[in-house]
Every structure is written in C-alpha cells, then in structure tokens.
Design a binder for these strands. Structure first.
Ligand SMILES: [Mn+2]
Ligand SMILES: [Mn+2]
Ligand SMILES: [Zn+2]
Ligand SMILES: [Zn+2]
Lengths: 150, 150
DNA sequence: GCCTTATTGAAAAACATTTTCAATAAGGGA
DNA sequence: TCCCTTATTGAAAATGTTTTTCAATAAGGC
C-alpha cells in the first residue's frame, strides 16, 4: 500500500512475492543489511527465495531510488530503504550499525566553491557520517567506568 | 625520499620493492585504481609482484592514511594516494575517473546540528563528490553540438 | 480464466579476496 | 661488510561474492 508498489508499477515492473519480501525486510530494519542477511530474513515470507533474486531486486530498487547502498569501513554493500528519496544521506553507528536518514543540506557552498576552484561540474555526491548511536555511547560509558573501578 | 618511507619506517615496517612499486604507481596516477590495475602497472618495476601482496600493501597503506579507498558507483575499491592526510575528500570524474583531492571544510555545522537532533556522536565521515572534469565537459559539448547539426 | 512475457531459482561460471606456508630479503647489530 | 632474525613475499588453495545462463513459473492486462 505504501507507494513503493506504485513506483515499481509505474516503472513497468511486476509486484512479486520476492520483491515484496525484500522490500518488507529492508523497511523493517534500522540497519543496513547485506544481500545474504536480506535473504535470510526474507525467507520467513518466501521460503524458496534465491540469492540471485535478492541481487536483482536490490539493483532494481536502487535504480528506482527506493533503496540505497551504504558504504561500510570493511567492504561495501549494506542496503537500506530510504524514505526521503534522493536528497538524503545516512548516519551510521559503527558499533551496532543502527542507521538514521537525514536530509541533504549545507553542502551547496562547499560544492560551488570547489566547482570554481577545480573547473569540475559536480552532479552528485555521496556522504555518510559514522559515529556512535545514543545506546552505544551509554554502553561504552559503562565499560569505561568498570575499567576505572579496577 | 618523500616521507611515506619515513612514515612506514616509523611504524616498524620495512621498505620493500613491492611497497615502493605500489606506492609509486598510486602517486603517479590521477585516477583511482583497482588492485588488479595497480598490479599491472607496478609489474613494470617489479615483474614478479603478486596480487596478494598488492592487497596486503593496500591494507597497510590505508591504515597509515597514505592511501584512501574510493567508492565508485559500480562496486567499491578504487585506491588513491592522498597528499593532505586524514582531513581530505575526493572529487571524481564519472567519465574519465580523474580525481582531485580537496580539504574537508564546511561540514561542522551540519554535523553539530545532527548530533543535537539524533543524539549520535559523530566520529568520522565519508564524502565524495561526483561530476565531470573540465576535459570531459568539453568532450560532452562537442557531442551535443554534433547532435544539433543533424 | 488465458496468454504473453517479465520474473524467478538452480547450477555453473566468473570474479574478488583471504588464508596458508615455505622461501626470500630487509635492515639492525656484530 | 656480513650475519642473523624475522617481517615480508608469492604460489596455491580456500573462501566468499556477484553474474550469467536457461528452462520453469507466475504477474497482470485482456
Ligand atoms: Mn547530499
Ligand atoms: Mn571531511
Ligand atoms: Zn549503536
Ligand atoms: Zn573526466
């Protein structure tokens, strides 16, 4: 009912059980998932789901901007569903991977200045912030306290 | 002589022919290179260089912040030598891959605001700008002109 | 419901990265 | 300068990831 189905349909694509399963998994996760992780979870809905189909589906959803690829420190390849559409980026917890989407703002001046300096024409950009989510900051404080007690 | 050798040495690592070859290749390229591309070029200096060694060397150089991984649209894994150290990012031409390093500025306010809003503590970030370099813009204009002539 | 054709899953191929291990070569100390 | 220790290397194999191929299946317009 959420309009990813509409978008897919408008693009001339069929709404299939595998696609529903993958989309469902991504929308209910607050952390980026790898194709394997997506498959494991999506099999709850569609038991015979193949990994190939997950790859194909992710490619399609990414092209339609329903899903975004997240770059992690070790290797690439986490995927998250996006709500804000094209003009957003992500803040990722390096400890638990929890991910928060945020709207893209505040880069225009930097970009304009760089275009002037380099002669490049900037078309697109990729931004990701890495840090600790509130829960993981709290956990870390406990660890530090324990160390001090020794 | 440039001080990457110093840095490596200080870190307790040996200055070897493979490392010199890889570093040389990266420093003389203005586009990100894949491990295979690095190997091919570096073999000019050190013919028996193994791909395994390239991977190991890239890992080491990346840890020492002499080299940075560049995220490309299709897949990850281009590597560039960095001059400015940690606080820099890259502007990459999507047509010829030519890459320009630029100092990191102008994100502090955005980051502070997000920390306030989300409770995250931001430790690090990843920024890449994609566009067309001057040469590729010029080429593109020629193509457009030809089309108009028809 | 039927028919067309986009989509799927299994298997195999292709590609990328890591591990293992014996041989080699850096570079500090004699 | 030459030794000796040990970090580093390269080949091979293992492991992991992504793509291709192709016959079978199921969406969804009619
Ligand atoms: Mn942005
Ligand atoms: Mn920065
Ligand atoms: Zn966390
Ligand atoms: Zn270019």
């Amino acid at each position: 009912m959420t309009d990813w189905k509409q978008l897919l349909s408008n693009a001339g694509c069929r709404i299939t059980t595998p696609r529903r399963a993958v989309m469902q998994v991504l929308m209910s996760s607050d952390a980026p998932l790898s194709p394997q992780e997506i498959r494991e979870r999506a099999q709850a809905m569609h038991h015979e789901l193949g990994l190939v189909t997950v790859y194909r589906t992710l490619k399609l959803l990414t092209e339609l901007n329903l899903v975004r690829r997240i770059h992690t420190e070790e290797g690439c390849c986490g995927y998250v569903a996006v709500a804000l559409g094209e003009a957003c980026h992500h803040l990722v917890c390096t400890s638990c991977r929890r991910t928060v989407e945020f709207p893209c703002t505040g880069l225009d001046d930097t970009v304009a200045e760089l275009e002037r300096l380099t002669g490049f024409s900037v078309q697109n950009h990729w931004l990701e912030l890495l840090g600790l989510c509130p829960a993981c900051q709290a956990k870390q404080k406990v660890v530090i306290q324990r160390k001090e007690e020794c």
